[in-house]
């Protein structure tokens, strides 16, 4: 079976002040339909550039994609006309961003923000919904992310919500357009550990219940283990190792992965190496 998302030999360079840096050197990864895949790497590894290239958010210039394909549902996103590309973004694939405060508009209520996205998604999907229908859908999606008082939350401004609730709103936003692929960029990193655990559990449950494909981008190996069953490890613009999550954590083959895993402090205390 072909993958829903397939990145093939993606190479990206950045040119600034007459110097060129190779940022991605032939990155390939697959996200099959309904699979939970993680892309893990430290800062500077190129995981965010990969994500931005997939979403079509790379500023060109300074970035330049010189080789590779990004196949989504059998179409190469890199050769797609801009109109169709834009149509896919935020509908077929949605993103959950890291920082819930700066991704929300502070002067709009949650309902207004969700409604804007819903109108856009409805237009793309050719759906006709009246005002009441949109309101019902907004409340429905807020309940899906297990928001306790969805009516009240809908009327709130972002500043009235806690960090965890804001993150839920962002997930609700991503779900509104009924995507097939959810790309999550470090969700929960800015949150307290108990809140992070709730958000990760919510994401896992939603993805499983709705049969979504998930691409989790993170630096935290623990988050990888909690949310994915297949993982790609990235370092210096290359995929250095990939495999089923449990197996790769138990028996890392590459030295880089071994060092990375060894550097993670264990809840059980020191491990002899």
């Amino acid at each position: 079976m072909t993958a829903l998302l397939s990145v093939q030999g993606l190479s990206v360079s950045f040119s600034t002040y007459g110097r060129t840096a190779e940022v991605l050197k032939g990155v390939s990864l697959d996200v099959p339909q309904g699979a939970q895949v993680a892309l893990v790497g430290e800062s500077g590894s190129g995981k965010s550039v990969t994500m931005k290239a997939i979403m079509g958010l790379l500023p060109q210039p300074p970035a330049r994609i010189h080789a590779g394909k990004i196949m989504f549902d059998g179409r190469d996103l890199l050769t797609l006309p801009e109109r169709e590309r834009v149509a896919l973004r935020g509908t077929a694939m949605s993103m959950v961003f890291q920082d819930p405060m700066s991704s929300l508009n502070p002067v709009w209520t949650i309902e207004d923000q969700l409604t804007t996205i819903l109108k856009y998604a409805d237009r793309r999907l050719g759906r006709d919904r009246d005002r009441r229908g949109r309101r019902a859908r907004v409340i429905e999606v807020l309940s899906q992310v297990r928001m306790r008082d969805p009516e009240r939350v809908a009327q709130s401004f972002p500043i009235m919500l806690s960090g965890g609730m804001r993150q839920r709103v962002l997930i609700a936003m991503a779900l509104l357009s009924e995507p097939r692929l959810l790309i999550a960029d470090e969700p929960g990193t800015a949150l307290d550990v108990t809140t992070q655990a709730q958000i990760l559990k919510l994401l896992r449950d939603l993805v499983e219940a709705q049969g979504l494909a998930l691409l989790m981008i993170t630096h935290n190996l623990g988050v990888v283990r909690e949310t994915s069953n297949y993982v790609y490890v990235m370092n210096k613009g290359e995929i250095v190792e990939e495999g089923p999550t449990a197996g790769l954590f138990a028996e890392p083959r590459q030295q880089y992965t071994r060092d990375l895993i060894a550097a993670v402090p264990r809840l059980t205390g020191r491990v002899a190496l």
């Binding site: 992070q196 809840l267 059980t268």
Partner: peptide, 14 residues
């Protein structure tokens, strides 16, 4: 207990 249960870990022992 809640704090410990919330920690994302990397091994089955943890």
């Amino acid at each position: 207990r809640l704090l410990l249960a919330s920690v994302p870990v990397i091994s089955t022992e943890e």
